[in-house]
Simulated assay, not measured.
Amino acid sequence: MTLTQQIITVVLCMLGTMFTRFFPFLIFTEKKPTPPYIQYLGQALPAAIFGMLVIYCVKNVDFLANPHGAPELIAMAVTTGLHLWRRQMLVSIAGGTLCYMYLVQAVFR
């Protein structure tokens, strides 16, 4: 990529990000109430997205071959336990990721 192409790419990514951040505030102003369907999506989508992430993370795990998915299952248990204990998403995600990386690199070689 040339420098001009890189600048154009960065600017387009920036504009796309800004558009997706600002557009809801332009559509749903304080004057009009937010439609019930949009409120429902705001409540349902976070759980659905996390469910899809869990499925994506374990889709290629071979539970019949050694180590039988143990690092993934242990890391998910640690993530769940941390979240139930602390109720802080960053702590849960970081703790589960560190646990998984430790298990894969040091324990289940």
Rank of each mutant, 00 (worst) to 15 (best):
M1K: 08
T2K: 10
L3I: 15
L3A: 12
T4G: 07
Q6K: 14
T9M: 13
V10T: 13
L12Y: 08
L12H: 05
G16Y: 05
G16E: 03
G16C: 06
T17F: 15
M18A: 15
R21Q: 15
R21H: 07
P24A: 04
P24K: 07
L26E: 08
I27L: 13
F28P: 02
F28Y: 14
K31P: 03
P36W: 05
P36Y: 09
P36I: 10
P36F: 07
I38T: 10
Q39T: 14
Y40L: 15
L41G: 05
L41V: 09
G42I: 07
G42E: 06
Q43W: 13
A44H: 08
A44Y: 06
L45H: 05
P46N: 05
A48E: 09
A48N: 10
I49K: 09
I49S: 09
F50R: 08
V54F: 08
V54I: 08
I55W: 11
I55Q: 13
I55C: 12
Y56W: 12
V58G: 06
K59I: 05
K59N: 10
N60K: 12
N60M: 03
N60L: 12
D62T: 04
F63W: 05
P67M: 02
P67F: 00
A70E: 04
P71R: 02
E72Y: 01
I74R: 01
I74N: 02
I74P: 01
A75G: 01
A75Y: 00
M76I: 11
A77E: 05
T79N: 00
G81W: 00
G81Y: 00
G81E: 03
L82R: 00
L82F: 11
L84C: 04
W85A: 10
W85K: 12
W85C: 03
R86H: 12
R86M: 12
R87E: 02
Q88E: 10
V91T: 06
S92N: 02
S92T: 03
I93E: 03
I93P: 01
G95M: 02
G96S: 04
C99I: 03
Y100A: 04
M101S: 14
M101L: 15
Y102N: 01
L103D: 00
L103P: 00
V104H: 04
Q105K: 14
Q105E: 10
V107M: 09
V107I: 14
V107D: 02
V107W: 06
V107H: 03
R109H: 13
